[in-house]
Amino acid sequence: MSPEGPNLEFLDLIDALEQLVLESRRLPVGGNLVVDRRRLLDLVDQLRLAIPADLRQAQQILEARQQILDDAHLSARKMIERAERERAQLVEEHAITREAQERSQQMLMDAEARARQIIAEADATAAAHLSEAAEAASKELDDADRYALEVLRRLEHQLQSFLDSIRVSIDNLQRER
């Protein structure tokens, strides 16, 4: 991939496709072209490979989401372990056993609530990133479609000009006979 990004690579491939058409031999009759099929199919395959950069970015976002979830679970486990240790210590102390049990239970619930909150925030962040990546991918596909349509229209216009020129030449030859 080029340093300028996937857009430039995609445009380079479209330019190579256009160059292939321009370099193709013309048939003497009908104005058709002989195009190297292998080169054409190779360029089409390369175009397909150039598009899914945003999908790779979406995968990275999903991996980052999983890392956030793993970190949240680890943090929750540490909080729970710390709460359990503190509860055990408080239970050992004679006068405040009941209070220690209640406090450790509250810490456990707080830790679970915090873990749920962290997981919910991670899910929301990942969903937002995934949505942005999907929108960016859709926009790039739309841009690529517009560009391809523009190139094909220019090509159609050039071909029509060639056909018009050939028709004029045929008419002139027929008139001279």
Rank of each mutant, 00 (worst) to 15 (best):
S2K: 10
P3A: 12
P3G: 02
P3V: 13
P6F: 10
L8Q: 11
E9Q: 14
F10Y: 04
L11M: 09
A16V: 01
E18I: 04
L22H: 12
G30F: 07
N32M: 09
N32E: 10
L33P: 01
L33H: 06
V34F: 07
L40H: 15
D42G: 09
V44K: 05
Q46K: 14
R48D: 03
I51M: 14
D54Y: 12
Q57F: 03
Q59I: 10
Q59D: 11
D71F: 09
A72I: 03
I80M: 14
E84A: 06
R87V: 11
A88P: 01
H94T: 08
E102I: 13
M107I: 01
A113M: 07
A113F: 00
R116I: 08
A120V: 01
E121D: 11
A126M: 03
A133M: 07
E135W: 01
E135D: 12
S138N: 15
S138E: 14
L141T: 13
D142P: 00
D142K: 14
D143H: 02
D145N: 09
Y147K: 11
A148L: 10
L149M: 03
Q158G: 05
L159I: 08
S161Y: 00
F162N: 04
D171N: 13
L173A: 14
Q174K: 10
E176D: 08
